[in-house]
């Protein structure tokens, strides 16, 4: 958390006491993508839509539509690399962020 972002956040008066989360499913709003130091990149020459990456992703960061792999949901992808490691075609590589 960068200090410059603190001012945009809720104050002690605005948040629920006891760190209670009163809204179900609100983890959707908590974007964990900025934790990432490596980003997954898809090689469109190699991929075969097997969706192994979708099965293995511990978050919900593989965009799958009508049985097709359409890319990564980077707002929540933490860059763990599990998709790349398990891809049977080596169609996903991890590239350093911010380089």
């Amino acid at each position: 958390m960068r200090c410059s972002e603190m001012s945009k956040m809720l104050t002690a008066k605005e948040i629920a006491p006891g760190a209670m989360i009163t809204e179900p499913g609100s983890a959707m709003k908590f974007e964990t993508g900025d934790w990432r130091s490596f980003r997954p990149v898809l090689d469109r020459e190699k991929y075969i839509d097997c969706l192994t990456c979708w099965i293995f992703c511990p978050d919900d960061s593989i965009i799958a539509k009508d049985g097709k792999m359409e890319g990564f949901r980077l707002s929540h992808c933490k860059g763990c690399g599990i998709c790349a490691r398990n891809c049977p075609k080596n169609a996903i590589r991890m590239e350093p962020e911010g380089v």
Binding site: M6, M9, A19, M20, I21, P24
Partner: peptide, 12 residues
């Protein structure tokens, strides 16, 4: 439905 005992980072 609510969550009790959630985690806080440096943020909250």
């Amino acid at each position: 439905p609510i969550t009790h005992g959630a985690m806080d980072q440096q943020d909250y």
